[in-house]
Amino acid sequence: MPLENSPKLDDYDKVFTKPPRQVSPRMKQIRLLILFLGIVVVVLGLVNLSRSDLTASLRRTGDLKGVVLDTYGQPFSGNIYVETTSLKTSINPDGSFLLKNVPAGTQLVVVADATVGHEFSINIVAGQMADMGTVVFQSTATP
């Protein structure tokens, strides 16, 4: 046979083509298990992330204003704190206050003098001014 009529190497490759790989049932189970575990890990990771300080620091902020009076209707002299943050401000001589950059979400705000505090739950909306309204501060130990 003349050399030019000899089969080419490519022809042999077509003859000996590997049969398609078939996945065994056990392999399918393992891959399903990997998929399931992957989903579990992602979900648990998201739950952990949602509980971390990172998400809190990524939250946006809003402002809070209000007026605090004593039981005689006079401006109250004291402080405003946002719990678990370092945010605080003194109440102005006219009883008003303004707190800027309060993390958005439900915040516990405390109106306090030197010894007694009263707590309020306020919803802060990012980019907006929340108004606490007028609060009457009871200085006595048992308001």
Partner: peptide, 30 residues
């Protein structure tokens, strides 16, 4: 004609092991 059936390899076992460890760590953290 013999059919090639591939079984699970070390890579798959390793992935399962790693995912189980990560899941357990996340649960313990919670």
């Amino acid at each position: 004609k013999k059919r090639r059936i591939s079984g699970q390899g070390m890579v798959e076992y390793a992935m399962v092991l790693i995912l189980v460890v990560i899941a357990v760590l996340l649960v313990i953290q919670l």
